[in-house]
């Protein structure tokens, strides 16, 4: 009986916290369906009185799908590269930590990447990008950011927890080092791969400053630049910006929903987290 009571109480606390955290987004979504005359008129109402999808229509007719496509391309390609190189690097740093001298030093250098505010390097980074001829080129937005210390760190953490005997056994069987990595160890890290996939897609989807500086062709613009451009010279175009924001949330949320059980676990999950 007592147990039941505390269960109800704790469940209520958790659900209420979750709803509170979710609410601003719900409010954003509901507002985006209000006609402009309702947006600013008191008293505010939770649900639109005259439901309209005009804002969405006008945002989409302005070529928004093109920007979504660009962002998707950036996110997908960037993520594939990030996964490949982070897994390689994190694996090497973990598995060879006892056999190669410089592993910790190499890892230390990569750690610099999280400590230094990358934003302050923007201009010098841009100089390198344009020197390489990647200006106004989608690769100029992808390549500079695919190496992420977080990704390397995650794989390294995972492979540190794998018993070395796995590797030793395979070596004794005569498997090459890279075969061990690709065929035996990489598939093991599935949950790390899934988590990093979501992180990476999210980062690339939300990138703003680098695309802004590197891309100068409207056709190559990403979704975040497009949203920012609704903040006009003489004020914010709230109608469009609300609709555009909601559209921008959808793809990443869908991806999250698909991967969700790996990321947040399920009700029954226990101890199977990598």
């Amino acid at each position: 009986m007592k147990k039941n009571k505390s269960s109800i109480l704790l469940t209520t606390i958790s659900v209420v916290s979750a709803l509170l955290i979710l609410f601003p987004i719900v409010w954003l979504i509901l507002s985006s369906f209000k006609p402009s005359s309702e947006l600013f008129s008191y008293p505010l109402r939770l649900f639109p009185k005259n439901f309209t999808i005009d804002h969405y229509k006008s945002v989409i007719s302005g070529g928004f799908f093109g920007y979504i496509y660009n962002s998707l391309f950036l996110a997908v390609v960037g993520t594939i590269i990030t996964l490949a190189i982070s897994a390689m690097c994190g694996y090497a740093l973990a598995i060879y930590r006892d056999s190669i001298k410089y592993t910790n030093l190499v890892f230390g250098v990569f750690l610099l990447g999280t400590l230094i505010p990358g934003e302050t390097l923007t201009i010098s980074q841009f100089s390198v990008i344009s020197f390489m001829g990647l200006y106004n080129n989608i690769w100029g937005v992808i390549l500079p950011v695919v190496t992420t210390t977080t990704g390397i760190f995650m794989y390294r953490q995972y492979y540190m927890s794998v018993p070395m005997s796995f590797v030793e056994a395979a070596r004794i069987d005569g498997a090459s080092e890279l075969y061990i990595f690709r065929k035996i160890m990489l598939p093991l890290a599935k949950s790390t791969t899934v988590t990093l996939t979501l992180f990476s897609v999210m980062w690339r989807w939300n990138d703003y400053i680098l695309p802004l500086l590197v891309l100068s062709d409207q056709k190559k613009y990403t979704i975040q630049i497009a949203i920012k451009n609704f903040i006009g010279n003489t004020g914010v175009d709230w109608n469009s910006i609300l609709a555009a924001s909601v559209i921008s949330i959808i793809p990443i949320t869908v991806l999250f929903m698909i991967l969700q059980k790996y990321i947040v676990g399920t009700d029954t999950a226990s101890g199977d987290k990598g």
Binding site: S14, V15, S17, A18, L19, I21, L22, P24, I25, M202, W205, N206, Y208, Q224, I227, K228, S245, S248, I249, I252, T253, F256, M257, Q260, K261, I263, V264, G265, T266, D267
Partner: peptide, 17 residues
């Protein structure tokens, strides 16, 4: 699952949004 998912969703948004 619901609560974890709901609490995670704001993480997905860009700083701009």
């Amino acid at each position: 699952t619901f609560s974890r998912t709901a609490i995670y969703i704001p993480v997905l948004l860009s700083s701009l949004v």
